[in-house]
């Protein structure tokens, strides 16, 4: 396939480097219940989510799709490489600046999809989740809209015991 020149050497060099490291507040039973109630509305969620004894008996686990960072993170790791970029880059989801690299001059974007792999390790009340993101891959493509840069970012969550919970890969198409 013809190289389109969208992936500069400094961009290729940051593939696999972690950024956006955050640690959650301890997850609460209320966080879990409210998430389940919201996503099942207007029907009630499965009974286990509302069972008042489930937490004490260790049976309460969070819905797989819960976001434990939605409102706030307890801590974020300082990132000395990060720098501010023009809002036009942020508007299309550019992330290279988090790793000290100027994003490409592509100012239109599409969501290319979402892929998640769950390990079977569930989030329970009291868990503290660590999130870390890497640029997993760059791909160049040609389409009727012109040359496109597909960037896969992979975010991995682990719990306080270092057990991997999930890896979510999002594809951002910039052109």
């Amino acid at each position: 396939m013809r190289e389109l020149g969208l992936v500069r050497p400094d961009m290729a060099a940051i593939v696999g480097q972690p950024y956006g490291i955050a640690v959650s507040y301890p997850v609460t039973a209320s966080d879990i219940r409210r998430w389940a109630i919201a996503v099942y509305y207007p029907e009630p969620p499965p009974a286990a989510y509302l069972d008042p004894d489930a937490e004490a008996q260790g049976r309460l686990v969070a819905p797989l799709d819960i976001s434990v960072f939605a409102w706030a993170a307890a801590r974020t790791e300082p990132n000395e490489k990060a720098f501010e970029v023009d809002p036009r880059y942020k508007a299309v989801g550019a992330m290279e600046q988090n790793l000290g690299v100027q994003p490409p001059d592509l100012f239109r974007a599409l969501n290319g999809g979402l892929v998640v792999d769950y390990t079977g390790v569930r989030i329970r009340p009291g868990d503290v989740v660590r999130s870390e993101t890497v640029i997993a891959r760059y791909q160049e493509k040609e389409s009727r809209l012109g040359a496109m840069l597909v960037t896969d970012t992979a975010t991995t969550w682990t719990n306080q015991d270092g057990e991997r919970i999930k890896t979510a890969t999002m594809s951002l198409i910039r052109y």
Partner: peptide, 13 residues
């Protein structure tokens, strides 16, 4: 339900 678990999901919006 509790007879199994989701281990992979992907979609395009």
């Amino acid at each position: 339900g509790d007879r199994g678990r989701l281990e992979h999901l992907e979609c395009r919006f």
